[in-house]
Amino acid sequence: MRFTLIKDIKNDSLMSPLIKGFLIFALLYLIADLFVKQHGFGLFSHAINATLFGDEELYIDAISEASFLEFWHTEIFMSMMLVFTLGTISIRLSEASRVSILLVNTLFIAAFAALASLALAFYLDPVFVELYVAGYFVWHLCALILLLHSLVSIYRA
C-alpha cells in the first residue's frame, strides 16, 4: 500500500516499472484463469452445472462438498487479492476519476456476487449458477478494462 503515498507514481523510477510488472502478471492471470476454468470447473452454466451436480448422460459425478468448499475457499482468496490490489492501483493511477471509481465498484460487487452465488448455487438452488456466470464475466471484463487503462496511462506518462 506504500504506493498510495508516493506523489508522482507514474514517473517514479522504481514504482513505475513495479506497477507495470504487476499489471502484466495480473493480465496474464486473468487470461489464464479463463482457460483453467474452461478446462476444469467450467466457464458457462451447462459445464458448471455438470461439475457441481453431475451429469448422468456424460457419466460425470457431482463434486463432493469437501472439494467444492476447498475450491470456493481458494477462489475467494485469489479473487479478493486480485480485485483489491487492482482496485487500489486503478484508483491511484486514474486519480480517482468518476469512470474508474464506477468500474472499481462494479468490479468488487460483481466479484462478490459471483463468489456468493457460487455457494448459493451449490447449497440452495442451481439457478444461482446463472448469477455466478454473469458476475464472473462482469468482474473479469471490468478487471480487464481497468488493467488496460492503467497500463496505457502509466506507459503514456
Binding site: 479478493m80 480485485v83 483489491f84 482496485g87 463468489l115
Partner: peptide, 10 residues
Amino acid sequence: IYFMLFSLLL
C-alpha cells in the same frame, strides 16, 4: 469496506 466483505466471506 469491500476488503472486509471479502474477508468475511473467506
